[in-house]
């Protein structure tokens, strides 16, 4: 049996666990704990502390594992471990919380330093009323025009599939360019 992995990262409460949950064929093995910090508790009740784990069986010989990183910076020691040997990574960003954009950029740079693998950026929660426009987000995040910034709703399977496929297309393009 061959296995490959992809990593889903991003700031606290950007929708990583929901993203994996939407597409995984098994219930996501989540390591969530109740939040104790007052500020963070206002956003959600539980958060990932080690990793989330999802699986997609491709065929008899191949399985894709999806790993979600903890979003809070104090758990960033897990990031390097999770990034080892990944095919690529997805940076999730909450489109309605611009105060997290700076952290998202920092996470993106950290992962690029760990492993220069292909990646895409998913602008999550695009279904929310106060979600930022994609091009505004690109400017705010100072993303190169070549970087794929994709609209996403992590609870919608079609949207999640589209993000995963875009990442796979990027990996294929990298292979064809001899990367």
């Amino acid at each position: 049996m061959q296995t490959v992995k992809m990593v889903v990262t991003g700031p606290f409460s950007s929708g990583k666990t929901e993203f994996i949950g939407s597409v995984s064929e098994i219930d996501v093995v989540a390591t969530e704990r109740k939040i104790t910090g007052t500020g963070e508790k206002e956003i959600k009740d539980a958060t990932t502390v080690a990793m989330d784990f999802g699986r997609i069986t491709v065929d008899e010989d191949l399985v894709l594992y999806l790993f979600g990183t903890p979003g809070q910076k104090r758990f960033d020691f897990m990031w390097e471990i999770l990034s080892e040997g990944m095919l690529g990574f997805i940076v999730m960003i909450d489109s309605a919380r611009p105060e997290t954009f700076r952290e998202a950029r920092s996470i993106l740079q950290t992962f690029r330093a760990y492993a220069p693998t292909p990646y895409v950026v998913a602008a999550n929660k695009q279904d929310m009323e106060d979600a930022w426009e994609i091009e505004d987000m690109r400017n705010a995040l100072r993303l190169d025009p070549k970087v794929k910034l994709l609209p996403c709703v992590a609870t919608d399977l079609k949207s999640v599939k589209s993000v995963l496929l875009e990442l796979l297309y990027s990996i294929l393009a990298e292979m064809e360019s001899g990367g």
Binding site: V4, T117, P118, L172
Partner: peptide, 27 residues
């Protein structure tokens, strides 16, 4: 290079491309 050898269970580039295509088809 962006694609390191340890990302794939195989070192054969043809098989690597086939693996990505299988992933694309499955998803």
């Amino acid at each position: 290079p962006a694609l390191a050898p340890d990302m794939f269970p195989t070192q054969d580039t043809g098989e690597q491309k086939s693996l990505i295509n299988r992933l694309i088809n499955r998803i």
